[in-house]
Design a protein around this nucleic acid. Sequence first.
DNA 1: GTGTATAATTAGGCATGCCTTAAGAGGGTA
DNA 2: TACCCTCTTAAGGCATGCCTAATTATACAC
Lengths: 217, 217
Amino acid sequence: MVTESAEEYLEAIYKLGEEGQPVALSTLAECLEISSVSANEMVRKLVERKLVLYEPYKGVSLTPAGQAKALAVIRRHRLWERLLTDVLDLSWDQVHEEACRLEHATSPLVEERLAQLLGEPKTCPHGHPMPTAEGEMAVEAGCPLAELTAGQRARVLRVPEGDDALLRYLATLGLKPQVTVQVEVAAPFQGPLTVQVGEARHVLGRELASQIVVRPL
Amino acid sequence: MVTESAEEYLEAIYKLGEEGQPVALSTLAECLEISSVSANEMVRKLVERKLVLYEPYKGVSLTPAGQAKALAVIRRHRLWERLLTDVLDLSWDQVHEEACRLEHATSPLVEERLAQLLGEPKTCPHGHPMPTAEGEMAVEAGCPLAELTAGQRARVLRVPEGDDALLRYLATLGLKPQVTVQVEVAAPFQGPLTVQVGEARHVLGRELASQIVVRPL
DNA sequence: GTGTATAATTAGGCATGCCTTAAGAGGGTA
DNA sequence: TACCCTCTTAAGGCATGCCTAATTATACAC
Ligand SMILES: [Mn+2]
Ligand SMILES: [Mn+2]
Ligand SMILES: [Mn+2]
Ligand SMILES: [Mn+2]
């Protein structure tokens, strides 16, 4: 077994390493909001337990065993997020923090039953993919909304999690997974995008639009 | 805030103190499966935080603040037990351990929504009363099944939690809260009871029968 | 190539929550 | 009253997970 703290590290290493690059210790420390000394300490323990590989000045990466553990935690996190939104009717900006605690208190049995009850959901409420019980995770390919040109239509795949205020803002715009958007104007020089969402038209900063992943139609 | 460990202590002190007597340190230690030295240490911290009162050689008891915290934890525990059995379809012998972890990872918001979803349940799956959100807990009066005499009918109020094997056994007998039982024979000299449960007839040891609380009809 | 900014590590500490060993305090019994 | 057993507490330790300050190692830019 792995402590709650170690689970948090594995989860962070997975997410930061999704680009394929090993994760710098300092990046990991910043992400977890701890000192790099503490990160170093824990990473050494994880190396000992063969859950991660570490090369100083290169970074940390997950072993297959570490990745399996990380994906299990992420699966639990996203299953809880779904339960909290779909069954307990919390808003999508309230669920991350709750799920971050519940994920560490979840047995494989409860994980399985949650998945059954929810109908084996394919994503979390923010559109991020659900790892399977077997530790597979298929990331649906897409592109940032910011890359679309005027006139293009697209379906929203996922939005950034983790910033509650941003999520509340996106909710007021109706910008959530599965929704269809159409770019009306893409201002040049990295200017804002005017997008139509449902009946409404909104202006989005390019920076924000680049964080929203869509599939062009 | 109070740590997970402190919550466990408060919960134990509440349950052990339900008779009204202060709880001996050694009793508390045994219940929590820790050394009495460790119990002493934590109790001193709880005294400092004005959550318990402690008199050496007398025992520990909860202050109003401590009782409120204890009841909140117990409420969360029992709400999770209900969710796990009623919504996630776990059996009643599987839920205690799961709920014991989840109870510490539950915000007031989730607590409230759980209660709503479940329809403000009055008891846990084992028949034990649900504290209200305001920190009230009404224990339905009853008597041990062992005290009934031949011919008496009664409704089961609650069964002992905490022993999974016992719970599985009771499940095979159909002896669960709300069920009506009729004593056929109460053997003298603390002998076993023959009881009718639904269509079936079972013989129960007096010791076991004394742990099942019923309301005579 | 060398210097320097950045990254990593060492050293030393602190809080929490548990432990064992051993000494002290209370209370019942012979 | 004296003894003994149990309960409590004191002393010292250990593991985990975090910290700061100071030092060392490295990579990259010049
Ligand atoms: Mn977490
Ligand atoms: Mn999510
Ligand atoms: Mn618990
Ligand atoms: Mn129960």
